[in-house]
Design a protein around this nucleic acid. Structure first.
Lengths: 254, 254
DNA sequence: CTGCGCTAATGGTAATACCACTCTACCATG
DNA sequence: CATGGTAGAGTGGTATTACCATTAGCGCAG
């Protein structure tokens, strides 16, 4: 028997087993796993380690648990990576400076690559994203839109820009830095107090898409970097100021 | 009231609870969690969801389980991120091209930033890493070293280079691309068949550290990018060839 | 002082029962 | 016939209990 000591726990074996089946192509996103009772019996184990394995896979976004329905192979939602990394950055005292540096680098490169690899439908989607945001800005200033909505629209544009690069790693990285930045609450103060700054953002976005559509790699990279640097400057300026009386919303404290 | 219906499961609440305590600084790496029985009783729940929560946190590298000893807050080992990403790349059919593109970008930038931020002790550590590897190459060619050892030494250098940038995100990203690349087995074939290529690597490394020590940002970036591009070229060349008869190492079957 | 072995604490599994949710199909109602 | 409510079955979620496997630590014999 080859089994040397082999102290792999059952739950870990189940994890490996499922991952293997995914790698082998036997399990694809959207597929449903057998019911826990049935699955446990099939594997010759109890429900506990099986559920622990599923819980672990769920934590890394591989499996989606739906009570009353079943367990399913998740269709890749890279948010989890950002969240995990965010947790780590909390432990490692990552600074906002680090984040902006990384954003400038990663997004600048993704913009450059997008200019090289973007397909017509990518460009069209980007223009639409810009239009949507452009129309949303006045509504936001009039108070018809929430700050969260605006941040989401901005995120969407940057993520679509990364998607246009067609590089899986860039897409991941952009997602990570965005999730981390949002979780840190970096952008709320700036854009919460100075909604008009969104006009600048939209202008940057449009010029960026123009550069991407034209295939001008260096220009696209340059615009993106200047865009992010501006956000950095604004944010740092806000950070250095004393906090406003209250939050951005509409509260009337006693 | 934003709360729709939304009832979070107990295990998820436990996960959030532990993460919160980490964010609050109540739990630090190395700290020991209470025994599962005691902890469950304290939280007013059973062991099952508690263990599921711990299993999930273990999957993302936050908690380390040690049978017979206890559960501990793990001291950040970013391998998990790379592994998770690797699993995703399997699902998304990420190409090796994407990886090298990302490596060139991320590591080039980290080299550049290292040239800006490296402290004397960083430079010294880098030179030492180069020396160690330089001495290891002849030993490897003589068969006194394993391929795995060499790959590890190479990894070590690149990670230390990232560490010299003093940007947590770069450190993470470099770690991710390296782990993913290693897991894909990209480098084994090239350096397994052509050990002499390590001489080139060492030369690149030394020039790179010189540039970092001199604070020449652009030169450092340029060297790193050329270094990685060379690896890419060699690897792609190998990939296009038919696989060799047997494994790379030194085995004498039967 | 050294080393063996016991013991207690801890994580790991198993088995069972029951709760909570979701979907579906059936049935009563208009 | 169309509609809407309802009961059932299936599924994940939790609780409880008991026991196995491994580890750390301590005491005892050498």
């Amino acid at each position: 028997m080859g089994k040397i000591i082999q102290k792999t726990s059952v739950s870990q074996q189940v994890i490996d087993h499922i991952l293997d089946r995914i790698h082998q192509g036997e399990l694809k996103p959207g597929d449903r796993l057998p019911g826990e009772r049935e699955f446990a019996e099939y594997l010759g184990i109890s429900r506990v380690p099986l559920r622990e394995a599923i819980s672990a896979l769920s934590a890394i976004g591989i499996v989606e648990k739906r009570q009353g329905d079943g367990n399913f192979i998740a269709s890749f939602s890279p948010d989890v990576l950002g969240r995990i990394l965010h947790t780590y950055t909390m432990l490692d005292h990552a600074l906002a400076d680090d984040l902006f540096e990384a954003r400038s680098l990663v997004e600048g490169a993704s913009a450059r690559l997008a200019a090289r690899n973007a397909k017509p439908e990518d460009v069209q989607a980007l223009y639409e994203a810009v239009d949507v945001m452009e129309q949303a800005v006045p509504a936001y200033i009039r108070g018809e839109k929430r700050l969260g909505d605006m941040l989401q629209l901005d995120d969407l544009f940057h993520l679509q820009c990364a998607a246009a690069s067609h590089n899986q790693f860039y897409i991941q990285f952009v997602n990570i830095v965005h999730t981390a930045g949002t979780d840190m609450g970096l952008y709320e103060r700036t854009y919460g107090r100075h909604p008009e700054k969104y006009y600048d953002s939209v202008e940057f976005h449009r010029q960026l898409v123009d550069a991407i559509a034209a295939g001008d790699e260096l220009l696209a990279q340059d615009i993106m970097c200047r865009h992010i640097d501006l956000i950095r400057t604004d944010t740092e300026q806000e950070e250095s100021l004393p906090p406003e009386g209250e939050k951005t919303g509409a509260d009337t404290p006693a």
